[in-house]
Simulated assay, not measured.
Amino acid sequence: MKRTRTLSVLLLTVLGLTGVTACGSDGASRAGEGGSDSVEFSIASAVLGPKEEVATYAVGKEEGFLNDARLKVSTSNADGSVAALQAVASGSADITAADLGAVMAAREKGVPVKAVGGLVQNWPWRMAVPPGSDIKKAKDLKGSKIGVISLASGSAMYARAYARNAGLDPERDVELLPVGVGAQAAAALKDKKVDALALYTQAYTSIENTGTDFRYLKNPDMFEGIRSITFAVREDTIAKKRDVLTRYLRASYQSMLFSAVNPEAAMRDGYGAFPQILAGKKAADRLSDDTKVFQAWMDTATPTSGKPAEFGDWGAISDREWTKTVAYTKESGQIKKDVKRADAWDGSLLKKANDFDAKDVVAQARKAAK
């Protein structure tokens, strides 16, 4: 207990962490039930739009992958990646899906967490303007106001890096204004309070579902290969719960494959596990739009080419991707020095985590009720 409290104080001091709150889950206790091992998954946000909590946990729960893995998983919500890592480091959660840059930043400050498996593998952030905007390329942003989720968010880091790559001074040549996401962000652009938005693809899809159109500026090559959301655990948990973590990752990647093949069925599973996504509406009234939003997230989390059954190597992060992610994380100010791969990454669970028959998962997904 003393060690847990010490870690919590360390995290709160060096990372500025906020609290973690429980959300509606399956109510599993921390002790194993019925021969199953218990796992606490910290979701690094509120469950509003469908993303990793649907693609991994909900599908795993509803389609039986977690049961087959002999796991009883419960969930909690954290206010962002940093807070989710607090939950993991303090021992109140076993695993989270957090931004890899946040893992590197935590590791640089001495927090004993490590990434153990990749999740989002394609850069999710885009710069968007109204279709009739005079802004055609990155340099045209000089003198503009860019809407970001918040000044401390990943979108602000992206916007600064985007401007800097175009030869602009992110402190003098552009102005960042917090506009949130969804209707609030759309209104800020429509009312010309901002000239452009810096959001993630899933957020744009949600807005586009309401009838709003965007024109997207090209992302420079510097963003290609940067890794984002990644499974992370406390370092000593890798040794203590090696088999449990391997089974959890395997079930998660099976669920990801299922979601890639049949995103509509995955979305239905999401409603079952997280009814709050429906916001009081009927599933039939939301399924089409929510599936589009979920598909946008899946597009960032899976290879851009090839058939789902051929994806393979779930969770792998290459040396090149690691190096590019370190460079971006340092440029964005999250870390001061290069973080060595061995210090913040342990891929030793992935070989066994990938030990499943993809054809069986694909067949199950295709048979899922429409």
Rank of each mutant, 00 (worst) to 15 (best):
V88G: 10
T230M: 03
D37K: 11
S76L: 10
L217V: 05
K351L: 06
G16I: 14
D140R: 08
K51C: 09
N122S: 12
M222Y: 13
S45P: 00
D346L: 07
V194Y: 02
V47I: 15
K139G: 08
A58L: 01
A31F: 14
K336E: 12
K292S: 10
T201P: 00
A69Y: 04
I135F: 10
G333E: 03
K351F: 05
Y158V: 05
R126A: 09
R234A: 13
L17M: 11
L287C: 11
G306P: 03
L199P: 00
T246P: 09
A185L: 07
L349P: 02
A84K: 02
V362C: 05
S29D: 13
S90F: 04
A196I: 05
S252Q: 08
K367I: 08
G118S: 10
V244A: 07
S155Y: 03
T6P: 09
T210F: 11
A342Q: 12
L257F: 01
D243R: 09
D269I: 01
T325H: 03
R5L: 13
K145V: 11
K61F: 07
E171C: 00
F294V: 06
K137P: 00
K240Y: 12
S74W: 13
F294N: 02
A344I: 01
A89V: 12
P303V: 04
S8T: 15
C23H: 04
